[in-house]
Simulated scan of single mutants.
Amino acid sequence: MSNPIEDRLTAMGLALPDAAAPAANYVPFVMQGNTLYVAGQISSGPDGLIKGKLGEDMSVEDGARAARTCGLSLLAQVKAACDGDLSRLKRVVKLTGFVNSTGDFVDQPKVINGCSDFLVELLGDAGRHSRSAVSAASLPLGVAVEIEGIFEIS
C-alpha cells in the first residue's frame, strides 16, 4: 500500500535518509503517548556533513538548504519510531533550530525556514508548527544547523 507522505517526497524528487544512530549516550527519539520527541538532527547530505558558520563562510541560502536536510532526517526518525509507517504522522508540533553563527548574525529564522518551509510544502497544514530559531557559537562536528522536533503520532 502506498504512503501519501512518501509518495509526495518522491514527487518532490526526495528520499528519506536512513535514520541516524545516536552518536552519544541518548536515544534518537522518545514516544510518550501520541507525542514523539526526536533528538536533534544535524545537517548532512549525500556528500556528508554540511559544515560552516553563518555570517562567516555560509550564506543564508546555504544555511536554509542545510536546514532542509535536517527536516529529512527528522522525518527518517519519525518513520523509524512508527515502525516504518510514516502515515502515522499527524502533525509537526514544534521545532527547535540551532544555527552555527557568528555573534552578529541575525537571520537564524531565515535559515530554519529551510526546514519549516519544506515540512509545510510536504505536509500542508499538518506541517505548520511552533518554532524557536537560535544562534549557537558552535555545533557538534562543526555542522551548520541542528534541529530537534516534537510530533503528534496516531
Rank of each mutant, 00 (worst) to 15 (best):
D7K: 03
A24D: 15
C70T: 12
I5F: 00
M58V: 11
L141R: 09
D57F: 06
M58K: 12
M1V: 12
G52A: 06
F29A: 15
R68Q: 15
A19V: 02
Q32P: 03
K79T: 03
G124C: 05
P109E: 09
N3S: 09
V120T: 15
V30R: 12
S132E: 14
A20Y: 02
F118K: 06
C82A: 14
L49A: 14
L16N: 07
G40S: 10
V92D: 01
S73G: 13
L36N: 01
S132I: 03
G13A: 10
G63W: 02
G13S: 12
D62R: 11
L89M: 07
T69E: 15
D7A: 12
N3H: 10
G40L: 00
A76P: 04
V134K: 09
Y37I: 03
Q41N: 10
S132N: 12
E6C: 00
A23S: 13
A76K: 01
C115L: 04
T69S: 14
E148T: 13
S73T: 08
L86A: 04
A80S: 10
G84Q: 02
P4W: 09
A19L: 01
Y37L: 07
N100P: 05
M31D: 08
V27P: 02
S116Y: 05
D18V: 13
G103A: 10
A39H: 09
D104T: 15
A24C: 10
